[in-house]
């Protein structure tokens, strides 16, 4: 959890707006450090977290989580965190091919045309099982706050053969369930390829996915490399864009920050105010 980012977004683990869909995206850069932020943020906020880790193993997230001061193993044991490890689940499907009934969630790997329905079912079961009762469980289990869904990352589904439309359907269903119905939050990461606006048109790819998700979300964090090129002390810039619906009209607000990722966190600063150049 990066406190500087919290003050930029005007949230704390004790008070955050519910029902938000946050989109984290990157282009020629790596935005996964923001996913670690949101994971530790919502664990600190005592939310019930469902994490779809599609690109890395659990031990990776756990190792980074320890540096940020949260223990994913403990959170998992307490039932606060439901971690879906895509890599592990995929192995049985990709290698053995015969359909075993162990896990249905990743059966789109066997045949991408099936769609992401079973993955959505998994999410729905996970998030709605928690918030069913507001009272303390009979066995003294701890009570958790609103459900949160984190996905790292959506664009890898495109690499596995799922179409853009299917992924957008999936995110829409998740938003309806998590954000609207249960008043929880949702954070999704998507990664764009190549240069900006290189060739759009009928590009069936990450560009269209990014545009579709931007349309759905309420807050975007877009990470890019520096336009002036590689720098060792400034790792890139983040564009934060709020889309608020106030009264009759919708207005957007944009802010641009530069960032540097450290060993145990990240610092954000206004353009040109890095300690390396001042």
């Amino acid at each position: 959890m990066y406190t500087e980012l919290n003050s930029i977004l005007n949230t704390t683990p004790d008070s955050f707006t519910q029902g938000e869909f946050i989109l984290v995206s990157d282009r020629q850069s790596d935005a996964s450090f923001l996913m670690h932020h949101f994971l530790s943020f919502y664990l600190r906020a005592r939310c019930k977290v469902c994490f779809l880790g599609l690109v890395q193993s659990f031990s990776h997230y756990n190792a980074v989580g320890q540096r940020l001061g949260v223990s994913l193993v403990q959170a998992k044991e307490k039932g606060q965190l439901i971690f879906f490890e895509g890599l592990k689940e995929s192995l049985s499907v990709l290698i053995s091919q015969e359909s075993n009934t162990k896990s249905q969630a990743i059966d789109f790997l066997r045949d991408p045309s099936v769609g992401l329905r079973s993955l959505y079912e998994f999410v729905r079961c996970t998030v709605s099982s928690s918030s069913g009762g507001g009272e303390k469980g009979a066995d003294g289990a701890e009570e958790w706050g609103p459900p949160v869904l984190l996905v790292d990352d959506l664009s890898v589904l495109l690499s596995l053969g799922v179409t853009v439309g299917t992924v957008l359907d999936f995110s829409h269903y998740c938003r309806a369930t998590v954000c609207s119905q249960l008043q929880g939050n949702m954070v999704m990461l998507t990664r764009c390829d190549g240069e900006e606006e290189a060739d759009d048109g009928d590009d069936e790819g990450s560009e269209r996915l990014h545009r579709g998700l931007t349309h759905q979300c309420s807050l975007t964090l877009h990470v890019q490399g520096l336009p002036t090129g590689y720098c060792r002390d400034i790792h890139g810039q983040v564009e934060v864009c709020w889309r608020r619906r106030q009264g009759d009209g919708q207005h957007t607000q944009k802010k641009l920050f530069q960032y540097k990722v450290h060993d145990k966190g990240a610092s954000f600063f206004a353009r040109g105010t890095s300690s390396a150049v001042l």
Binding site: S90, L91, P112, G161
Partner: peptide, 18 residues
């Protein structure tokens, strides 16, 4: 076979991580 190699690399990563 646009997704053949990427799917293979996904499986390879899954194998190697374990």
């Amino acid at each position: 076979h646009r997704h053949a190699l990427t799917t293979f690399l996904y499986g390879l990563r899954a194998l190697l991580r374990s």
